[in-house]
Design a protein around this nucleic acid. Structure first.
Length: 764
DNA sequence: TTAGGTTTCG
């Protein structure tokens, strides 16, 4: 009997194997050697469903693991079983059973596997005189179905540079481009996805499915996908992926550090620690190899004649005609231009009327065409959308002198044009929802006044003069004709301002030497960190009276030594949220992660007798999102032991200013600097804003790292200087300016600065 | 079958 079930008694099979058989180890197994009197023994770790080959032969595949040599590099092998033997085995085999095979044929695999699997596989069949002995746990065989379900097949993933024409493969990739699912001209939805992986090879996949939900849930470039059973074909000389029967996908957020939660429509999928590791590795690779997408557009930031993607909420929709459909959406911000309202028949307009009325100044009409109409019709009011490739156009209606901005989603799918529905769990949606709720609240508070006064949206933004109320207004011509220094109160219009890209307005200022400098970028910091990683941590500096040290070596091609020194208080470690730590040899990403958990992070390197700060082009201290820098001219960095006095304080506050002082650092201040071109009936002048927080009501130190604050600043600027308006239609603003002299060797120049003025907001 | 990335009739 070729397949024999042996009972296992106290770890031994009840009947001994034939005496001529000797055990062979996986290491010694080779194609072409004589294995006639040898047997292979292992534990069944995986089994695949019993299938039939093209000629009708039954086929069953299992994976055996050599449980006695788990540590050796090769510890498992594929067993391919044919014919009646396949059927018999499939019936009785259970996960975890001991499986013995003799009389096998050794076949070399075409490709080298890297997961501990043997480079050969064994083929067995009754015809070839093979014998199989299974030492089973008898109870297991009463529940063959149960044991099958618990066996997850192990998938092999093909790198994108190893794809072969005509194969069906599993793969991972980072989304480089995608078209959200759209209605094809056939019977299915279609989605086109271009992937890249660390092999730097691109693969464009064309995916079809009649069920929208079965296509990958990709929301942005940089998402990571896992495709199972995708068919590879050659098209126009390039490899192409297409859906095959049984295609399945998982999609993951590509953000480093985000939870690894697959988006999928399948109820059953395999996902284990190994997959989690793959995703995390791909995220890291993508972070430094895929260009980061532009910051998300907001309605407050749109300009005429651009294409952009918008994340928004649907509050109304209406049929317009056969080839176009109207979507009314908002994102909580106000479009700085008057927007085009698409005339529709009242009976066709869906959505809550009161809400549409309240939000009318924040809602824009997006007209979608052709192939997008069917999808648009199916959308639910209140759902969150990402609309890709909206086109803005400017047009003026005959009866009006201001031109309106129009929003179109043209037909076709070029550049990924289309509509995607985002689930409420999406982090961008959660952020948006929070923002919309705050705007809604503000709106409802102001509703009465809004309705009675018919305020024109956020253009009711005003400046508040916080002092010097005794001054009366002076016209600009009088000011430019006066000698400096003096102070004035003015009423003027903001004709233009610089920089237009608000994030460029943030600088670092040294109050000691009055110098201004650009905020160093991430690459500068990366470069300095890389340089400092070359210095290995000095073990003599570890574990002192005032800090405790942890050291480890990273794995990978270029191992690095990382040392973290946790500053103690009263000889004890503090809670992470109160802890200051010093790190040697960390990467930007590692440091960034530490700032999420610990109060302060100081990057350092070892010298012979103490730890010291890195080059001052790098932040000397990181706290939360904020990087603190020191002035290179005015600082005299001291060794890190100077910090020990702060650690000994009753309750160390770890205030950046105080840390800077004990370390001999002249702390640079974040400041927003802008040039306003102000005009009135008599003339114009350029006045500078030099703002830590007072004018914009936004801390300058957080502008670069906080999207909302940037948004708030943008809205303020849009209300002070609404783009697209004629001079006569600009709002007036009142502020204080002071004049001052700047002398150099050749001439004296008068400058003007806005001071003691604040923007009062009234967003809705 | 459909689409096979590269912006538009409105």
């Amino acid at each position: 009997m070729p397949v024999q079930l042996l009972k296992l008694i106290k770890g031994q099979s009840e009947a001994p194997l034939p005496s001529h058989l000797q055990r062979e180890s996986l290491q010694h197994l080779q194609e072409g050697c004589d294995h006639t009197n040898k047997y292979i023994q292992g534990v069944v770790t995986l089994s695949y469903p019993l299938t039939k080959l093209g000629d009708g032969t039954d086929f069953f595949k299992i994976v055996l693991q050599d449980s006695e040599n788990l540590r050796s590099r090769i510890n498992s092998i594929n067993i391919l079983i044919y014919g009646k033997m396949a059927k018999d085995c499939a019936r009785i085999i259970c996960h975890g059973e001991i499986f013995i095979v003799a009389g096998f044929k050794v076949i070399k695999l075409p490709e080298v596997t890297e997961d501990g699997r043997h480079g050969c596989q064994l083929e067995v069949s009754e015809e070839a005189g093979s014998a199989i002995y299974v030492c089973g746990y008898p109870s297991c065989c009463f529940f063959p179905l149960m044991s099958k379900i618990s066996i997850a097949p192990k998938y092999v993933y093909t790198p994108l540079n190893h794809l072969k024409d005509g194969t069906i493969v599993n793969l991972y990739g980072v989304v480089k481009f995608f078209k959200p699912p759209y209605v094809s001209k056939g019977t299915d939805y279609c989605s086109v996805v271009t992937l890249v992986d660390p092999s730097e090879v691109k693969l464009t996949c064309t995916l079809f499915n009649g069920n929208l939900d079965s296509l990958p849930k990709i929301y942005k470039v940089g998402d990571i996908v896992r495709f199972h059973r995708i068919k590879i074909r050659k098209y126009n000389g390039q490899m192409q992926g297409v859906t095959s029967a049984g295609f399945a996908s998982l999609t993951f957020d590509g953000t480093v550090g985000a939870p690894v939660v697959p988006r999928t429509s399948s109820k059953v999928y395999t996902f284990m620690d190994e997959e989690q590791k793959t995703i995390e590795e791909l995220r890291l690779w993508a972070a430094s190899n895929i260009p980061t997408s532009e910051p998300a557009a907001k309605l407050s930031g749109v300009r005429p004649m651009v294409f952009f993607d918008l994340t928004c909420q649907l509050i109304g929709k209406a049929k317009v005609d056969g080839s176009s459909f109207l979507l009314k959406v908002w994102d909580g911000t106000k479009c700085p231009y008057p927007t085009w309202k698409v005339p529709v028949e009242e009976k066709y307009l869906e959505g809550e009327k009161l809400r549409l009325y309240h939000l009318r100044n924040l809602t824009v009409d997006i007209l979608v065409y052709d192939n997008h109409v069917q999808l648009a019709e199916s959308l639910t009011i209140g759902s969150f959308l990402r609309i890709y490739g909206i086109h803005t156009k400017q047009a003026s209606a005959d009866s009006e002198d201001v031109s309106h901005i129009q929003f179109h989603l043209h037909g076709g799918t070029c550049y990924g044009r289309g509509i995607g529905v985002l689930p409420e769990s999406n982090p961008d949606v959660q952020e948006l929802k929070e923002f919309l709720e705050s705007v809604d609240l503000l709106g409802s508070q102001n509703n009465e006044s809004m309705c009675s006064m018919e305020l024109d949206g956020p253009f009711s933004n005003i400046t508040v003069l916080t002092d010097h109320q005794h001054l009366s207004n002076t016209d600009l011509k009088t000011i430019t004709n006066s000698t400096a220094p003096q102070q004035f109160r003015i009423r003027a219009k903001l004709r233009t301002y610089k920089p237009q890209k608000l994030h460029q307005s943030v600088k670092l200022y040294c109050s000691k030497c009055n110098s201004l400098q650009e905020v160093p970028n991430r690459d500068d910091f990366k470069f300095i960190l890389r340089g400092s990683a070359a210095t290995a941590p000095n073990p003599e500096l570890h574990n002192t009276l005032w800090y405790e040290s942890v050291v480890w070596t990273t794995r990978g091609q270029k191992p690095r030594e990382i040392a973290i020194h946790f500053v103690k208080h009263d000889e004890m470690l503090q809670y992470p949220e109160d802890t200051l730590l010093m790190i040697e040899g960390g990467t930007l990403k590692e440091i960034w992660k530490l700032t999420k958990r610990f109060k302060c992070v100081i990057p350092v390197r070892s010298t012979e007798d103490d730890l010291e700060l890195l080059d001052l082009s790098a932040p000397f201290l990181l706290q939360g999102n904020i990087k603190y820098y020191g002035c290179k001219q005015c600082s005299t960095p001291k060794p890190m032991r100077c910090l020990s006095s702060m650690a000994a304080e009753e309750q160390p506050s770890w205030e950046p200013a105080e840390i800077a002082q004990v370390l001999g650092i002249e702390l640079l201040q974040y400041v927003v600097i802008m040039r306003f071109t102000l005009v009135d009936e008599t003339g114009s002048l350029n006045a500078y804003i030099f703002d830590y927080e007072r004018f914009f009501q936004v801390p300058a130190s957080e502008v670069l790292t906080n999207k909302f604050l940037q948004e708030k600043m943008q809205m303020t600027m849009n209300s002070l200087c609404p783009p697209g308006r004629k001079l006569g239609d600009l709002p007036w603003l009142e502020c204080f300016i002071r004049s001052y002299n700047v002398r150099d060797s050749t001439k004296n120049q008068v400058y003007y600065q806005i001071f003691d003025t604040t923007i009062a907001e009234d967003v809705v």
